[in-house]
């Protein structure tokens, strides 16, 4: 069995073999592998005895269930109004310059993916960004770059 298949059979064991477990299972795969590969979706479909198209249909609806490869660390900068007013543009520019990618892209070494997100629920402490599941409120262009270093950005 591939590592993906092992992971999925563990997740199925944990959450149960029903359609109601589909979201927790897909979330578990993304937690480990950062995205849902075709293989992963086909395996989940087989395990739950539903069609792979159904799995893709559900996955493709959700912003956090990526179906294209993502870096080891996914950075999401809030772009909604309150963070907009607190100059999220400067944060995005600093991250783009540092990582040498544009929003939506992944670095060559597959370490970082840079994305924007709708309201992250920190409007009183903007601008805010998520790295994987961790939240960083009130970032500046400087601290945003320092945070990347924490996640092992090679200089």
């Amino acid at each position: 069995m591939s590592t993906t298949e092992v992971l999925i059979s563990e997740l199925v064991e944990l959450h149960g073999r029903t359609r109601n477990s589909l979201m927790p299972i897909l979330q578990g795969v993304v937690q480990q592998e950062k995205y849902l590969s075709e293989d992963a979706m086909i395996t989940v479909a087989r395990e739950l005895n539903i069609s792979a198209a159904d799995v893709f249909g559900t996955a493709s609806f959700y912003t956090f269930l990526d179906t294209i490869p993502r870096g080891k660390n996914v950075v999401r900068v809030c772009k909604t109004i309150s963070c907009h007013m607190k100059n999220k543009e400067a944060i995005i520019r600093a991250l783009e310059d540092t990582l040498k990618i544009k929003v939506g892209e992944t670095t060559h070494d597959k370490q970082f993916t840079l994305l924007t997100a709708n309201c992250l629920g920190w409007c009183h402490k903007g601008p805010v960004m998520l790295v994987n599941d961790e939240v960083y409120p009130e970032v500046t262009p400087e601290t945003a770059v320092e945070i990347l270093n924490k996640y092992g950005r090679s200089k």
């Binding site: 109601n20 477990s21 589909l22 927790p24 559900t58 609806f61 959700y62």
Partner: peptide, 23 residues
């Protein structure tokens, strides 16, 4: 149960769909 980044899932019936493994 966790969501996966969809505002509309706060709407109650969309939330049920999501919990049942659908869009």
């Amino acid at each position: 149960r966790s969501g996966s980044g969809a505002y509309v899932c706060g709407e109650e019936s969309a939330l049920f769909e999501s919990m049942e493994g659908f869009r």
